[in-house]
Nucleic acid binder design. Structure first.
Lengths: 224, 224
DNA sequence: ATTATTAATATTGGATACAATAATAAAAAT
DNA sequence: ATTTTTATTATTGTATCCAATATTAATAAT
């Protein structure tokens, strides 16, 4: 099937439309609204966004670089397939990158930043499946922000986006969210005590175990 | 100054020219042939590569994602500035990513792969400043290849490219190369013994200390 | 009937043309 | 003289057009 023509979305007519198109497509892909494997035709997207194919092509290139779209020369674009084996890789990369960020962040962490993270955590507690991904990302990024390493933070952000796609199709249970929330509490406590070593250890376990759980969850779903 | 028009380079007329243009520009930027801060005009590049501005734009986007080019909407592209403070960040990211790769690679490492790495190492021994960067990258990537994690390997490759730019402008001494070579020997020994823990420890120190050395080298060069 | 070959169609890649924005130079005002 | 405003130029962003490639359908051959 091709992209069923959705409501034409008028976008800001200024500057770089490519970035705006990429932004909209990105959220659609992460949320699963555009499913994996979907073929993205330049003409259809151009109609949807009321532009020519040119900015659409630019946007597809951007998303390709982020790993959300596969682009084959002369053959078009398709939403990147989520191969279950790849989950481990992404979560391993997250673990080492985020531990590095946290290690440098903790000495610079202010109380108000910890409070902000706690606020996001409590929000996530009552939130449903829909918002879990974005709140989870916000929680983590709040803690890492003071590490003052822009390249590292951008890298982590990309990995979160990739991971969130799996979360969506995994249809995670409340159990998963509860456990994550508990681990976030422990992590916050260690941050509050400025216990860098403990916090890093907790974070590493938190990410790796989440990845493992997701992996088995999707594995059994695919064979069932 | 703008890009002084160099010899027009005819490139393969098929498929995706953007990747080819990106490849050529990448080596020029890494080697320092195109210096940091240089403004890249689409028209000039199009002339150089005998194409229109269109594939050039695609290429610039690719390089932007790799961190080699800064792209500002409606204002053009410039070769990314090498801020000395950023060296540590890149080398820290290299360390954790490459240790992760090596950890998973060693159990899968074959003797012939180790021999190949050793061959590259001995080549680097006699090589000059020019080839050090590319041989160093080849050495490391040979050891990581069997980890079978494409996303991780691509990430590492990008980080190497970024690091190599600093190497070029640092005008490193033979001392630096000698030490690197010695550490490569030790690393190979640990790999040969399939001693994962030791190899990872050596690799981590190898990368971090190289980053530190580069940092101080450039720091003193900028104040002198 | 099945496969191979050719023709028709759809889709992407690239070139040219035009529009919007930013940078620069010139002119006017204080 | 300095600042503000306006006009000019340079450069990027987008649209449209054409060419190259891939896909599909139709035809021919075995």
């Amino acid at each position: 099937m091709t992209d069923k023509a959705p409501k034409p979305t008028k976008i800001s007519r200024s500057g770089a439309q490519a970035n705006e198109i990429a932004r909209l497509l990105r959220t659609d892909i992460i949320s699963g609204e555009i499913p994996q494997g979907e073929i993205l035709r330049q003409e259809n997207l151009a109609q949807r966004f009321q532009t020519s194919r040119m900015p659409v092509r630019d946007a597809l290139r951007i998303l390709e670089q982020e790993g959300l779209v596969d682009l084959q020369p002369n053959r078009g674009a398709q939403v990147a397939i989520l191969d279950v084996e790849g989950i481990r890789e992404i979560y391993e990369m997250r673990a080492v990158a985020e531990v590095l960020a946290l290690r440098h962040a903790i000495p610079e962490l202010t109380n108000s930043q910890i409070e902000k993270a706690e606020k996001i955590r409590s929000e996530a507690e009552s939130a449903g499946l829909e918002q879990f991904g974005v709140l989870n990302k916000a929680f983590h990024e709040t803690l890492y922000a003071p590490c003052a390493r822009p390249r590292l933070l951008s890298h982590i952000s990309s990995l979160h986006d990739l991971a969130d796609r799996y979360l969506r199709i995994a249809a995670i249970e409340l159990d998963y969210i509860d456990r994550s929330n508990q681990e976030h509490c422990q992590l916050l406590a260690a941050c509050n005590a400025r216990d860098t070593l403990k916090a890093c250890k907790l974070l590493d376990q938190h990410i790796i175990s989440a990845g493992e759980k997701l992996f088995t969850r999707l594995k059994e779903a695919s064979t069932r």
